[in-house]
Protein backbone atom coordinates (compact mmCIF):
# COMPACT_ATOMS: atom_id res chain seq x y z
CA UNK A 1 0.00 0.00 0.00
CA UNK A 2 2.75 2.39 1.03
CA UNK A 3 4.65 1.48 -2.08
CA UNK A 4 1.66 2.34 -4.24
CA UNK A 5 1.35 5.73 -2.57
CA UNK A 6 5.03 6.42 -3.22
CA UNK A 7 4.64 5.28 -6.79
CA UNK A 8 1.55 7.43 -7.28
CA UNK A 9 3.29 10.54 -5.98
CA UNK A 10 6.35 9.78 -8.11
CA UNK A 11 4.28 9.56 -11.27
CA UNK A 12 2.48 12.74 -10.32
CA UNK A 13 5.73 14.56 -9.67
CA UNK A 14 7.26 13.41 -12.96
CA UNK A 15 4.21 14.52 -14.91
CA UNK A 16 4.47 17.93 -13.26
CA UNK A 17 8.15 18.12 -14.16
CA UNK A 18 7.37 17.14 -17.72
CA UNK A 19 4.66 19.72 -18.04
CA UNK A 20 6.78 22.50 -16.58
CA UNK A 21 8.79 22.12 -19.77
CA UNK A 22 5.82 23.60 -21.60
CA UNK A 23 4.92 26.53 -19.41
CA UNK A 24 2.96 28.45 -22.02
CA UNK A 25 0.30 25.73 -21.78
CA UNK A 26 -0.64 27.23 -18.43
CA UNK A 27 -2.00 30.37 -20.10
CA UNK A 28 -3.71 28.39 -22.81
CA UNK A 29 -5.45 26.37 -20.11
CA UNK A 30 -6.50 29.52 -18.24
CA UNK A 31 -8.07 30.75 -21.46
CA UNK A 32 -9.80 27.43 -22.05
CA UNK A 33 -11.18 27.31 -18.53
CA UNK A 34 -12.53 30.83 -18.91
CA UNK A 35 -14.16 29.81 -22.17
CA UNK A 36 -15.86 26.74 -20.71
CA UNK A 37 -17.01 28.88 -17.79
CA UNK A 38 -18.44 31.42 -20.24
CA UNK A 39 -20.36 28.78 -22.16
CA UNK A 40 -21.80 27.18 -19.03
CA UNK A 41 -22.69 30.34 -17.12
CA UNK A 42 -23.72 32.24 -20.25
CA UNK A 43 -26.11 29.44 -21.12
CA UNK A 44 -27.65 29.56 -17.65
CA UNK A 45 -28.08 33.35 -17.80
CA UNK A 46 -29.79 33.25 -21.19
CA UNK A 47 -32.06 30.35 -20.28
CA UNK A 48 -33.09 31.78 -16.92
CA UNK A 49 -33.86 35.09 -18.59
CA UNK A 50 -36.99 33.30 -19.79
CA UNK A 51 -37.87 31.00 -16.93
CA UNK A 52 -37.53 30.62 -13.17
CA UNK A 53 -36.85 26.89 -13.11
CA UNK A 54 -35.57 24.33 -15.55
CA UNK A 55 -37.02 20.89 -14.84
CA UNK A 56 -37.37 21.93 -11.15
CA UNK A 57 -33.80 23.22 -10.93
CA UNK A 58 -33.38 26.89 -10.02
CA UNK A 59 -30.65 29.03 -11.56
CA UNK A 60 -28.44 28.73 -8.49
CA UNK A 61 -28.94 25.00 -8.27
CA UNK A 62 -28.00 24.70 -11.90
CA UNK A 63 -24.90 26.76 -11.19
CA UNK A 64 -23.92 24.17 -8.58
CA UNK A 65 -24.44 21.48 -11.22
CA UNK A 66 -22.22 23.38 -13.64
CA UNK A 67 -19.58 23.51 -10.91
CA UNK A 68 -19.73 19.73 -10.54
CA UNK A 69 -19.66 19.33 -14.32
CA UNK A 70 -16.54 21.46 -14.73
CA UNK A 71 -14.85 19.80 -11.78
CA UNK A 72 -15.50 16.22 -12.92
CA UNK A 73 -14.45 17.20 -16.44
CA UNK A 74 -11.27 18.57 -14.89
CA UNK A 75 -10.63 15.34 -12.99
CA UNK A 76 -11.10 13.32 -16.16
CA UNK A 77 -8.68 15.42 -18.20
CA UNK A 78 -6.25 15.81 -15.32
CA UNK A 79 -5.96 12.26 -14.09
CA UNK A 80 -7.92 9.70 -16.11
CA UNK A 81 -7.63 10.57 -19.77
CA UNK A 82 -3.82 11.16 -19.97
CA UNK A 83 -2.97 7.74 -18.53
CA UNK A 84 -5.48 6.02 -20.78
CA UNK A 85 -4.06 7.74 -23.86
CA UNK A 86 -0.59 6.69 -22.83
CA UNK A 87 -1.73 3.14 -22.19
CA UNK A 88 -3.31 2.86 -25.64
CA UNK A 89 -0.16 4.25 -27.24
CA UNK A 90 1.94 1.77 -25.28
CA UNK A 91 -0.14 -1.15 -26.49
CA UNK A 92 0.13 0.05 -30.06
CA UNK A 93 3.88 0.63 -29.94
CA UNK A 94 4.59 -2.49 -27.90
CA UNK A 95 6.06 -0.53 -24.97
CA UNK A 96 3.29 -1.87 -22.76
CA UNK A 97 5.56 -4.91 -22.41
CA UNK A 98 7.74 -2.83 -20.11
CA UNK A 99 4.79 -2.24 -17.79
CA UNK A 100 4.11 -5.96 -17.63
CA UNK A 101 7.69 -6.79 -16.68
CA UNK A 102 7.50 -4.53 -13.61
CA UNK A 103 6.69 -6.01 -10.21
CA UNK A 104 3.68 -3.71 -9.79
CA UNK A 105 0.01 -4.17 -10.49
CA UNK A 106 -0.25 -3.41 -14.18
CA UNK A 107 -3.70 -1.81 -13.97
CA UNK A 108 -2.49 0.53 -11.26
CA UNK A 109 0.52 1.50 -13.30
CA UNK A 110 -1.47 1.92 -16.50
CA UNK A 111 -3.95 4.22 -14.80
CA UNK A 112 -1.59 6.47 -12.86
CA UNK A 113 1.29 7.05 -15.19
CA UNK A 114 0.43 10.39 -16.69
CA UNK A 115 -1.24 13.54 -15.44
CA UNK A 116 -2.01 16.81 -17.15
CA UNK A 117 -1.18 19.30 -14.46
CA UNK A 118 -2.84 22.42 -15.84
CA UNK A 119 -6.21 20.69 -16.07
CA UNK A 120 -6.28 21.04 -12.29
CA UNK A 121 -7.32 24.62 -13.03
CA UNK A 122 -10.68 23.21 -14.09
CA UNK A 123 -10.96 21.27 -10.85
CA UNK A 124 -10.26 24.41 -8.84
CA UNK A 125 -12.64 26.45 -10.99
CA UNK A 126 -15.37 23.83 -10.56
CA UNK A 127 -14.97 23.88 -6.78
CA UNK A 128 -15.08 27.68 -6.81
CA UNK A 129 -18.31 27.65 -8.80
CA UNK A 130 -19.83 25.14 -6.39
CA UNK A 131 -18.89 27.41 -3.49
CA UNK A 132 -20.27 30.45 -5.29
CA UNK A 133 -23.54 28.67 -6.04
CA UNK A 134 -23.97 27.55 -2.43
CA UNK A 135 -23.25 31.06 -1.23
CA UNK A 136 -25.83 32.51 -3.61
CA UNK A 137 -28.41 30.00 -2.47
CA UNK A 138 -27.88 31.14 1.12
CA UNK A 139 -28.72 27.56 1.86
CA UNK A 140 -28.47 25.98 5.26
CA UNK A 141 -26.03 23.34 4.18
CA UNK A 142 -25.77 20.61 6.74
CA UNK A 143 -22.58 18.74 7.39
CA UNK A 144 -24.41 15.61 6.31
CA UNK A 145 -25.14 17.14 2.92
CA UNK A 146 -21.50 18.02 2.37
CA UNK A 147 -20.35 14.57 3.40
CA UNK A 148 -22.93 12.95 1.15
CA UNK A 149 -22.00 15.17 -1.78
CA UNK A 150 -18.28 14.50 -1.28
CA UNK A 151 -18.99 10.78 -1.07
CA UNK A 152 -21.06 10.85 -4.24
CA UNK A 153 -18.44 12.91 -6.03
CA UNK A 154 -15.95 10.21 -5.11
CA UNK A 155 -18.31 7.52 -6.37
CA UNK A 156 -18.87 9.56 -9.53
CA UNK A 157 -15.13 9.59 -10.17
CA UNK A 158 -14.87 5.86 -9.54
CA UNK A 159 -17.68 5.29 -12.04
CA UNK A 160 -16.07 7.46 -14.69
CA UNK A 161 -12.69 5.84 -14.06
CA UNK A 162 -14.12 2.32 -14.32
CA UNK A 163 -16.00 3.24 -17.46
CA UNK A 164 -12.84 4.59 -19.10
CA UNK A 165 -10.86 1.62 -17.92
CA UNK A 166 -13.34 -0.72 -19.61
CA UNK A 167 -13.12 1.25 -22.85
CA UNK A 168 -9.34 1.43 -22.57
CA UNK A 169 -8.96 -2.31 -21.98
CA UNK A 170 -10.47 -2.88 -25.41
CA UNK A 171 -7.17 -1.61 -26.78
CA UNK A 172 -5.90 -5.17 -26.29
CA UNK A 173 -8.07 -6.28 -29.18
CA UNK A 174 -8.88 -3.15 -31.18
CA UNK A 175 -6.67 -0.58 -32.75
CA UNK A 176 -8.68 2.63 -32.69
CA UNK A 177 -10.13 2.70 -29.20
CA UNK A 178 -9.53 6.42 -28.89
CA UNK A 179 -12.57 6.88 -31.11
CA UNK A 180 -14.73 5.61 -28.30
CA UNK A 181 -13.33 8.17 -25.94
CA UNK A 182 -14.31 10.77 -28.50
CA UNK A 183 -17.87 9.51 -28.33
CA UNK A 184 -17.77 9.85 -24.57
CA UNK A 185 -16.40 13.37 -24.82
CA UNK A 186 -19.04 14.31 -27.36
CA UNK A 187 -21.76 13.05 -25.04
CA UNK A 188 -20.24 14.39 -21.85
CA UNK A 189 -21.21 17.97 -22.80
CA UNK A 190 -24.82 16.89 -22.31
CA UNK A 191 -23.98 16.57 -18.60
CA UNK A 192 -23.97 20.36 -18.33
CA UNK A 193 -27.72 20.11 -17.87
CA UNK A 194 -29.53 17.85 -15.37
CA UNK A 195 -30.26 14.50 -17.01
CA UNK A 196 -33.88 14.53 -15.86
CA UNK A 197 -34.77 17.15 -18.50
CA UNK A 198 -33.85 14.73 -21.28
CA UNK A 199 -36.50 12.48 -22.85
CA UNK A 200 -36.66 8.97 -21.37
CA UNK A 201 -34.63 7.12 -23.99
CA UNK A 202 -31.83 9.66 -23.93
CA UNK A 203 -31.88 9.76 -20.15
CA UNK A 204 -31.40 6.00 -20.02
CA UNK A 205 -28.43 6.32 -22.37
CA UNK A 206 -26.90 9.09 -20.24
CA UNK A 207 -27.43 7.04 -17.09
CA UNK A 208 -26.48 3.53 -18.02
CA UNK A 209 -24.67 3.54 -21.35
CA UNK A 210 -22.54 6.62 -20.68
CA UNK A 211 -22.72 7.13 -16.92
CA UNK A 212 -22.98 10.93 -16.95
CA UNK A 213 -25.98 10.94 -14.62
CA UNK A 214 -24.02 9.32 -11.80
CA UNK A 215 -20.92 11.36 -12.49
CA UNK A 216 -22.52 14.81 -12.55
CA UNK A 217 -26.24 15.02 -11.81
CA UNK A 218 -26.35 12.77 -8.76
CA UNK A 219 -23.51 14.48 -6.84
CA UNK A 220 -25.11 17.84 -7.67
CA UNK A 221 -28.43 16.59 -6.32
CA UNK A 222 -26.69 15.61 -3.12
CA UNK A 223 -25.21 19.10 -2.87
CA UNK A 224 -28.58 20.80 -3.03
CA UNK A 225 -30.03 18.30 -0.60
CA UNK A 226 -32.30 16.46 -2.96
CA UNK A 227 -30.83 13.00 -2.90
CA UNK A 228 -33.04 10.03 -2.08
CA UNK A 229 -31.70 6.97 -0.28
CA UNK A 230 -32.60 4.91 -3.34
CA UNK A 231 -30.47 7.05 -5.67
CA UNK A 232 -27.64 6.94 -3.16
CA UNK A 233 -27.77 3.16 -2.91
CA UNK A 234 -28.01 2.85 -6.68
CA UNK A 235 -24.99 5.10 -7.26
CA UNK A 236 -23.05 3.19 -4.65
CA UNK A 237 -23.98 -0.15 -6.20
CA UNK A 238 -23.19 0.99 -9.73
CA UNK A 239 -19.85 2.37 -8.52
CA UNK A 240 -18.73 -0.85 -6.87
CA UNK A 241 -20.18 -3.02 -9.61
CA UNK A 242 -18.53 -1.11 -12.43
CA UNK A 243 -15.19 -1.07 -10.62
CA UNK A 244 -15.27 -4.84 -10.18
CA UNK A 245 -16.32 -5.35 -13.80
CA UNK A 246 -13.48 -3.09 -14.96
CA UNK A 247 -11.01 -5.08 -12.88
CA UNK A 248 -12.20 -8.45 -14.15
CA UNK A 249 -12.26 -7.22 -17.73
CA UNK A 250 -8.73 -5.86 -17.38
CA UNK A 251 -7.48 -9.20 -16.12
CA UNK A 252 -9.19 -10.95 -18.96
CA UNK A 253 -7.53 -8.46 -21.32
CA UNK A 254 -4.09 -9.15 -19.88
CA UNK A 255 -4.62 -12.87 -20.19
CA UNK A 256 -5.63 -12.48 -23.78
CA UNK A 257 -2.70 -10.14 -24.46
CA UNK A 258 -0.25 -12.76 -23.22
CA UNK A 259 -2.02 -15.47 -25.16
CA UNK A 260 -3.19 -17.37 -22.10
CA UNK A 261 -6.84 -17.54 -23.04
CA UNK A 262 -6.38 -17.93 -26.77
Amino acid sequence: MRRYLTLFSTFLRLSVLGELEYRANFWVQILESILSLTVAVGGIIIVFDHTATLGDWSANQLLALVGVYIMIGGVITFAIDPSMQRFMQDVQKGTFDFVLTKPVDAQFMASTRQFQLWKLIDVVLGLAIIGWALWRMQAQITILQIVLAALLLGIGMVIVYSFWMILGTMAFWMIRVDNMFQIFNAMFVAGRWPVNIYPTGLRAVLTFVVPIAFAVTVPAEALIGRITPTTFALAFGVGIGLFVVARLFWRYGIRSYSGASA
Binding site: R3, T6, L7, T10, F11, R13, L14, L17, G18, E21, K93, G94, T95, D97, F98, K102, P103, V104, M109
Partner: peptide
Protein backbone atom coordinates in the same frame (compact mmCIF):
# COMPACT_ATOMS: atom_id res chain seq x y z
CA UNK B 1 11.59 0.72 -27.74
CA UNK B 2 12.15 3.35 -25.10
CA UNK B 3 10.69 3.43 -21.69
CA UNK B 4 12.06 6.66 -20.29
CA UNK B 5 9.93 9.77 -20.28
CA UNK B 6 10.91 11.89 -23.25
CA UNK B 7 10.44 15.29 -21.69
CA UNK B 8 12.33 15.00 -18.46
CA UNK B 9 15.91 14.11 -17.50
CA UNK B 10 16.60 10.42 -17.00
CA UNK B 11 17.62 10.94 -13.40
CA UNK B 12 14.03 11.93 -12.62
CA UNK B 13 12.62 8.91 -14.41
CA UNK B 14 14.93 6.70 -12.36
CA UNK B 15 12.86 7.70 -9.32
CA UNK B 16 10.00 5.66 -10.79
CA UNK B 17 12.19 2.57 -10.85
CA UNK B 18 13.24 3.25 -7.29
CA UNK B 19 9.60 3.32 -6.21
CA UNK B 20 8.60 0.32 -8.31
CA UNK B 21 11.40 -1.91 -7.09
Amino acid sequence: RNQLNWDIPAVDSYEVNRAIY
